[in-house]
Structures are given as C-alpha cells and as structure tokens.
C-alpha cells in the first residue's frame, strides 16, 4: 500500500516542512510501452498518487529502475497534453536496459523535472522577432528531448509563427524514431527531412550525415534559431554547419549529456568545465564558452 503523497518537487531555496527529499523518487506506474526500435522503448508513466509532474520541453527526469539504479532521461512527451509522462529510452547501460525491459504495470521511480530545457522565447515573440524560423536538428535518440519542443513549435506555427524545419539523422531507416508521427508533423506544416547513415534500396529518403541536410533546408539562417540534440560529435559538426550557413552562435542551442547521478547539482559528475550540466543546462547556447569547451579533449 502506498502511503505517501506525491508532492511537487520544490525549487525554493529553503526546504519547507514536509518537503520531499530531493533524492527520494516518486512512484509512477508504466501504463503503456511502445517499442520504437530494437534498442529504444517509450514508456508512458502515471503517478500513483497526486497527479503527474509538469515540465518544459527539453527537461529531464531521473528515472529509477528499482534495484538497478537511477539515470537521467529526457522527457519526450507533449508538455501540454496532461497525459502520462513519456520517456523514450535507449538501452545503452544496465539501468536503461532495465527500464526498457519494464512491462505495463511495473513501478518506476521518478524525480524531476530537472534542467533548463529549450529556450523557445525566440519564437514566442520577443519584441517583434516572432516570425523566426526554427531549425530542429536531431541525431539518433536525440530526437526524444526535441519532440516536446517540436510539438510546442507546431502549436506556435499554427498561430502564425515562423517555419519549423526538422532535420533528423539516424543510423538506418529502422532506427528512426517516431516515424509515423513525422508525417503528422509534415501535415501540420513542418518541413521534416530524414537522412540515414546506411540504407538498402527500399529506403527512398536521404543517405548521408544530418549536416548535409542543412544546406538545402528552407530557412533564413540570419533570422532563425536552432535546437540541436544528438551525439556530441554530431552536435559540434551541426553547430559549425549552421554557423557556416550564417546563423548566429547564440541562436544555436545544444542539449548536452554527461553522467548525471543526482540531477540537482550535488554529485559533481556532470561537470563540463564551468558548468554543472544538470543545474546550468542541459541546454546551452553554442556561443559564449561552449564552442571552446566542446573542442577541448577529455573535458
């Protein structure tokens, strides 16, 4: 029997009486499980009590596979749909493998949401610049944290905002996430292109690196901003390609990944030079110090 109340994670400076301990997970139940690819699973989670957490696009949760451990996983759901919390998880380690193996009805520990998320103020109408184009560049499972942003951007587009371009790089056609949904995005006005590293003749899409899609994508680089998520090397190359195209470095946002064991700035594992990624990120503009930091080896 579950005895505790689910309390919203506090964000204030002083913990108040009865506040939940920041390291104590809230129990959620897997209510749906979708196999996305041979290594990626999407879990839909419902809080046992107290309602689901609310989040912003690009934020992440710490998910506990009980008895195995806890990892940071970005939220891939629609922030506004109020439904179960959606996590798209790639099986790359012991905990993610355990999470991917969970069945409907299993219990998952959730802490979060953490991190800053994508900065969408560029589209939401900062001083008349509301018509900026947005270029979303995703590599592999990097599409997962971008999905909430795309959904929010499409809503904004329907209200007359700028173009939404989604460029997706994947290993092979069968590894492309949310395939059916991409057509929905297209019908809602997004320009969606997918390129893969390798394909057989049945693949009618592009073959090549995701950066090769940038040159011919329909956006105005001088009045656009970009959201990029994928392997770090892919993000470095993408950022440079966008710079070459004429986009300002501060308008290129990257979502970074490092080992996170707490999500709240205590454990020190996710440092990248001056940044604690969980606390200061995971989303950073490419301008400022990030370009230099990413170019440093073993930082």
């Amino acid at each position: 029997m579950v005895t505790e109340k689910s309390v919203e994670p506090f964000r204030g400076p002083i913990p108040e009486s009865g506040s939940r301990h920041p390291l104590l997970p809230t129990p959620y139940r897997v209510v749906k499980r979708v196999v996305e690819t041979d290594t990626v699973v999407t879990l839909f989670l419902e809080a046992l009590e107290g309602g689901n957490l609310t989040f912003r696009p690009g934020q992440f949760n710490m998910l506990t596979a009980f008895g195995v451990g806890e990892i940071a996983v970005s939220i891939s759901g629609d922030p506004l749909d109020g439904g179960p919390i959606r996590h798209t998880i790639a099986s790359v380690g012991a905990v993610s493998h355990a999470l991917c193996s969970l069945r409907v009805g299993s219990l998952v520990g959730v802490r979060g949401p953490f991190g800053n998320g994508w900065d969408l103020t560029g589209v939401t109408g900062m001083a008349g610049s509301a018509t900026q184009d947005v270029v979303v560049v995703a590599g592999g499972v990097g599409l997962a944290p971008l999905r909430p942003a795309v959904l929010e951007l499409l809503k904004m587009k329907e209200e007359g905002r700028g173009r939404v371009v989604v460029l997706i790089g994947s290993r092979s056609p069968d590894q492309v996430l949310f395939k059916e949904e991409l057509d929905v995005w297209r019908t809602r006005g997004a320009h969606v292109e997918v390129t893969v590293d390798r394909a057989d003749a049945s693949w009618r899409g592009s073959v090549g690196v995701v950066t090769s899609l940038i040159s011919s994508a329909p956006f105005d680089p001088h009045d656009a901003f970009s959201l990029v998520c994928g392997p770090e090397v892919m993000m470095r190359f993408t950022a440079r390609a966008l710079l070459d195209k004429g986009m300002h470095e501060d308008k290129i946002q990257l979502s970074l990944e490092r080992n996170m064991q707490c999500g709240i700035g205590w454990c020190g594992h996710c440092q990248l030079g001056p940044y604690l990624l969980c606390r200061d990120g995971p989303v950073f503009p490419y301008g400022g110090r990030l370009a230099e930091l990413l170019a440093k080896r073993e930082l």
Binding site: T39, R171, D197, G208, V209, P231, M234
Partner: peptide
C-alpha cells in the same frame, strides 16, 4: 572536402552505440 568530411563522420557510426540485446 565536404563529402570526405561527411564520410568520415559517418565512419564514426555515431548513432551505433546502442546495444541490441
């Protein structure tokens, strides 16, 4: 050069670190 660099990036198999199990 662009093609060569793109080919090199693909040789990295960046998205291929997921283990099938």
């Amino acid at each position: 050069l662009e093609r060569l660099q793109a080919t090199r990036v693909r040789l990295l198999d960046l998205y291929g670190d997921g283990k099938v199990s």
